[in-house]
Computed example of a mutant assay.
Amino acid sequence: MRHLSISKAWDETRAILGRDGQLMMVVAAALIALPAALQVTLNPDQAAGTPAENSGLVVLLSFVAAIITFIGTLAITHLALSSGSTVAEAIRVGARRFFPVFVAALLWVIPMMLLFMLVLGAMVGPEALESGDPQQIGQALDGTELLVLLFLMLAFFYVGVRMFLITPVAVAEKKGPVAILKKSWQLTSGHFWRLFALLLMFAVAAMIVLITVGVMIGLLTTLAFGEVTPWSLPAALLGLFTGFVQAALTVILMTMSARIYAHLAAEPTVPHASAD
């Protein structure tokens, strides 16, 4: 098991962002900020962290935006691993590696979700599950069943942390979906708690920033341009602000994951093995 220093990885992340951050933000603006802005323009409520009503068009556009964003994260990871790459090259790598890493993600997410839903359905019954009412579902569960569901959720989080490196693995090693999962699991062995603490802190900070920006910009755009409604100018402005915040956060996280991967892989074939 190789030693992992989160502080060293963070120092290298800052160095890379200082050198290549503008290039990364060009990619993030086009492939992350703009799709996110479109989603907020369609559903302004999601920028404030409230549930949005989804029509068929919104679901379709959200799916397309998610694919573009996924490609963007891969492109940013390539830039973090390969100093001197161009934007066009990074986007090509992201597009080529999208399918393997997407399938790899589905291979672990879907079984975990199905298991959770099957267990929940067996506990509360099909009627309560189909209703989707949290209160009705909660009333159908006793203490032991809640503990079982909590255990399944913890198992989901555990596997999620172990899969943290699938993006840099997919970009750097050109493996297939199953091999990507195996390599991420291998690299993160013995480092769960460090990675869990990192992801937890980042998730909390990102949530606070996104909700705060969404609420504040929403208030400002409402005062300046009127009510924020779907397909309105205020909604578009709100989407742009929140989209660029989301893009910046993604650049930071993907660069950090690339540096952690470079430390743990520590192979001569790993590109950008040094942040110097």
Rank of each mutant, 00 (worst) to 15 (best):
A206Y: 05
R162S: 03
Q246V: 10
F63A: 14
A224W: 13
A66D: 10
L249P: 07
G176C: 08
L264I: 09
S82F: 09
I71A: 11
W10V: 15
L165K: 12
V87C: 05
A104L: 14
L60S: 08
L61T: 08
A88W: 10
T269V: 14
L4A: 03
A52N: 02
I110N: 00
L220M: 14
A248E: 01
T167P: 00
L60P: 02
L240D: 01
A33G: 02
G94E: 07
S82G: 00
T269A: 15
A235H: 05
S189E: 14
A90C: 09
Q246G: 15
S274E: 15
Y261F: 15
S62G: 14
P51S: 10
L165R: 12
T222L: 00
L200N: 05
F63N: 04
G94V: 05
I180N: 11
Q186G: 00
R92F: 06
E145A: 15
R92W: 10
G21C: 04
D133I: 08
V161S: 01
F244C: 08
A122E: 08
L152N: 09
F151G: 13
A236N: 09
L223K: 06
G72F: 03
A29M: 05
G190W: 12
V27G: 11
S83V: 04
G21S: 03
W231K: 02
M123A: 13
G160T: 08
T13V: 13
L154Q: 04
G214H: 05
G72Y: 04
S83I: 01
A140W: 00
A224V: 08
L165P: 13
Q139A: 15
T212F: 14
V204R: 05
P100E: 06
A140K: 09
R14M: 14
L199W: 00
T221N: 01
P111D: 01
P35T: 05
G218F: 05
V103I: 15
A36R: 12
L74T: 06
V58M: 03
F151T: 13
D45P: 02
R19Q: 14
I166M: 13
T167G: 06
L23P: 00
L165A: 11
S257G: 10
I166R: 08
G218Y: 08
K174G: 11
K182W: 05
H263K: 14
D11E: 14
A88Q: 12
W185R: 11
L17Y: 07
T221I: 02
A47L: 12
L147G: 07
L195E: 02
I6G: 06
M254D: 13
P111R: 01
L237P: 04
V27Q: 12
I91M: 10
A28I: 05
L238P: 07
T188M: 11
V58Q: 06
L129V: 09
L149W: 08
D45N: 10
L238G: 06
